[in-house]
Nucleic acid binder design. Sequence first.
DNA 1: TATGAATGAGGTTTCATTCAT
DNA 2: CATGAATGAAACCTCATTCAT
Lengths: 212, 212, 212, 212
Amino acid sequence: MSKGSKPAVQKRSRKTRDQIIEALDRLLRIKEFDQISVTELAEEAGVSPGSIYRRFEGGLIPVLFELCRDRIERRADEPQAQIDASAAVGLRVVLRLAAAAVWGQLSSCPHVYRAAHLQARLRPDLIGDAWKALEDSSLQSFRDIIAAFPDEVRRRDLDRAAAMVAYHFNTVFIERGLFADRSPNWRGLPDSDGFARDVADFAYGFLITAED
Amino acid sequence: MSKGSKPAVQKRSRKTRDQIIEALDRLLRIKEFDQISVTELAEEAGVSPGSIYRRFEGGLIPVLFELCRDRIERRADEPQAQIDASAAVGLRVVLRLAAAAVWGQLSSCPHVYRAAHLQARLRPDLIGDAWKALEDSSLQSFRDIIAAFPDEVRRRDLDRAAAMVAYHFNTVFIERGLFADRSPNWRGLPDSDGFARDVADFAYGFLITAED
Amino acid sequence: MSKGSKPAVQKRSRKTRDQIIEALDRLLRIKEFDQISVTELAEEAGVSPGSIYRRFEGGLIPVLFELCRDRIERRADEPQAQIDASAAVGLRVVLRLAAAAVWGQLSSCPHVYRAAHLQARLRPDLIGDAWKALEDSSLQSFRDIIAAFPDEVRRRDLDRAAAMVAYHFNTVFIERGLFADRSPNWRGLPDSDGFARDVADFAYGFLITAED
Amino acid sequence: MSKGSKPAVQKRSRKTRDQIIEALDRLLRIKEFDQISVTELAEEAGVSPGSIYRRFEGGLIPVLFELCRDRIERRADEPQAQIDASAAVGLRVVLRLAAAAVWGQLSSCPHVYRAAHLQARLRPDLIGDAWKALEDSSLQSFRDIIAAFPDEVRRRDLDRAAAMVAYHFNTVFIERGLFADRSPNWRGLPDSDGFARDVADFAYGFLITAED
DNA sequence: TATGAATGAGGTTTCATTCAT
DNA sequence: CATGAATGAAACCTCATTCAT
């Protein structure tokens, strides 16, 4: 549970909660998070300002994190292509699949993740620990992948390597997926698919190259 | 010239300008950029709010970008170790030097770059084009480095590879250098030096591994 | 009956009423009346906000007056020392007994009387006429006392004198008993017992001194 | 200086301050202090809400205390009948003069003193210590008066007696002068002049009657 | 040119009160 | 009857910006 949100037991409560987070989703598609006021969100949601404060103690940020959590869970629930880390396909391919998975997640609702990512940096104190679990799960996937290809990987410290790869994937994709329109955007960078492929190749090259 | 700042030719003007940006530097060490009001900055700088508006049309953001530009130039002026991309030392070593250079730049005043980085994402419209030049210069360095080691690099499209490496370096170091205290901070990640080394190894592995 | 309260004949209703006024009593021991919201009182009482409105039309003030009335009645029911205004003890002693009685009443629950006294001044329109009866009864006691000592009293207009004494007693004791911690609190004033004695002596001196 | 108010050095500032406190004076004549909002006061004063916050940190209460202080000073500055505590006129007369002085002070702007008196009890933490000085000065006058009539006064502890008289005068007059329309208002009480006379007689009787 | 008092729009937040369940 | 989620008016307060001095 994101910090600041309350359980919604009654049917009416649940409906209000959903109206609020869906309204925030809609608003984030058209404007910046910090241009949105509680009053405006309330209007879009068709509820009163007071309802937002009752349900999400602390104002808009808890609403954002709740929305974010909702989207993550929604995707987690979908029957999606689990990465098959079998030796059959090879490390390079598996990394590309992983890259595609992260990329797909971010692309599903970049407006939400963008706002959450920025606010998490702007107001680090307000983040709950739902994120911790996400990170752990991401880290564990990469450990599994690395462990599945002992013959290809040449790094000595496998946990450290997994952490580097997880960090690299998340950081680079977030930057490009969420802020492509407002960051340096280095000329010469390949687009979407090529980019994901190259990012996977960074990790691949790193893992298969021996340390000196 | 960043959008919003005015030339300060006169001596008195220059002094006011310096008082203002140095005051912002001091405030950024102790609090978030968006917790700083024009009045507060004016007090810290020992000038009036009106003076800030006279010198930096547009409020605080132009002051921030001016401060940022000032810090970048200050560092550029320093007689610092230019990377010697001679074949003698090898690609891997040169990449490590480049990593150290980026890392050093960020570490010199993280509070300034952090604020600038966030505001650039929050208010993309307010950024001038001073950044463009920075990016170009960074991109060109990596092109030079890659061009200096034709025997080691196995990538086909060298410009694209240079863009990927530049993007990778900047993104990953910014994330870790500026937001270490407020981001996932993946457990298992090596610290400072080890991290910079591994980041360089990502680029190295990428460049020397043939595409399939 | 204080304006705004409803008869609570049924057993369940009576229980709700008691829960509410006892909750208010508890809250008044720890915070100011106007810092207490309906919702807070409802929580403390273990009932819903709606129940407070059902039982006490008009919100919190009727609850306060009901509580006050309850405390006054509770004390009136107690088998307490009735003042024996017999000539045997003398006017001065009887006045001291009267002073002690008023003082004792106020001291029994100053937090309740303090809130009621302030709200009566803040919202004079909301007071019922229960008070009228109290005043009359107080006034009558002093008339009786004065009438019992025709030889000592030198005032011409005995009703006026009784009104002055009643006014004096009530005013001075309320000020000192309820607001000692937040009023001028004149340095040099005697404490509790000495104060009550001196107040009685004011009345005594007034009554036995001839007009000019 | 009342807590929460700022010095007003500039001419413009002084004008704003005066507009604000005079507006509060006008509003207090027609409605309760706590029915007045900052916005309403700003409108009445012809200034912006922001100006009130700038000049009186803490909102309306500091404005009230400043107004009160202003009225007290204004009266203190007036060339008024100083009480001549010479033995020539006698203790009884001097006490009546003192009563008339207190009564006159309160009557000069009861709406202001009423609000201040209530708020001082409602928010004791917000009062500055300007009051302390007033009390001291009042206390000292009564000490002087008592000292001037050693032959008439029969009390043993003269400081205690002075404190009692000061307390008595202030308390009783405040109650009757400021809240006559909303307090018990005991039937049978004499009006204005008679009341002030009788109050003085309480003190007189007290002082000249020997303790037992 | 620098000042800083004043502005006032607009955000945040509370809470008495209602009414569907 | 009791409940308590929802309401929404209205208060509070801030702060970027202006402009008379």
